[in-house]
Amino acid sequence: MNVDLNEKSSEQNNVTSDKPKILDIRDVSIAYGGELAVRNVTLPIFEKSITAIIGPSGCGKSTLLRSLNRMNDFIENVDQTGVISLKGDDLYGADTDPVEVRLKIGMVFQKPNPFPKSIYRNIAWGPTINGMEGDIEERVLTALKQSALWDEVKDRLQDSALNLSGGQQQRLCIARALAMEPEIILMDEPCSALDPVSTSRIEDLLFELKEKYTIVIVTHNMQQAARVSEYTAFLENGVLVEFGDTDQVFTRPANQRTEEYVTGRFG
C-alpha cells in the first residue's frame, strides 16, 4: 500500500508554474524513533507564492514544515532521508550551517511565542545578534508596518510584548520573522490559537506578504487554505496524496481521498 501511494504521489507532482522554484523537497522521509511520519515526499515550493499544506491531525505536515528550516534538529531520534535544497543549496549538506538556514527561512509558530521582553526588543533582537546592516530602528518600524501592527503599538514600543492580545502577539511574531528579511517564511497553523477577527487580519496580511515573500503555511482550516494559498499539498499518513493549484485541488481534485477530505467527509 505504501509503495502504491508513493507512485501516485510522484505522478501527481507535475505541477508547472511560471514562478521559479525556490525550495525543492525531493523524496523526503522523516522518522521519529523508527516511526515514519513523512514518507517519500517530493514537493516544489514556488517563489513569492503561498503554499498550503493540509491534512488530518498527525499526518506529518508540521514535521515536514519543521524540516524545511531544520527545527527538527532539536528533537531526539529523528531520522531524515531525501534532499531539501534552497535555490540549489542542500539544507542538510555537510558544510551547511543550520543557523544560516534559519536566517534564510524564518518561522511563525502555532502558539504566539513572543520573547518576554519589550515589543521593540522582540523584533530588534534577531537583526542585532546577526549583525544585520542598516538602522535597526528603521528595520523594526518597517517590520511592524508590514505586519499591520504599527498603529496599535506605535505609542508603546517599550511595553512588554506579553501585554498584547493573542492576535497582536502573533502579528508581532510575524514581524519578528519579517525583520530578518528571510527568503521563505514557514507558518505552522499560525491562526489555530486565535479568534476569527484576528485570523482574518492575519489572512489579509498573508495576501500582502506574498508580494515579497514565499510562504509555506500548515493549516487545519481548509477554508483558510482555499482563501489564501495558490498551491495546496494534501498529506495523509505522511504521504503526499496530491499537490496542485489550490483551485484545482479544491474544485477538481485528482485523488478521491483529497476530494473526501476537502469536502469534509473525514479528517
Binding site: V99, E100, R102, L103, F115, W125, I129
Partner: peptide
C-alpha cells in the same frame, strides 16, 4: 517555545541561552 522562537531568527545555542 521560547527557545524555538530564538532559534528561528538565526540565533546560536549560546545566544539563545544567554539572551
Amino acid at each position: 517555545s521560547l527557545r524555538q522562537a530564538a532559534f528561528a531568527v538565526g540565533a546560536t545555542r549560546w545566544q539563545v541561552t544567554r539572551a
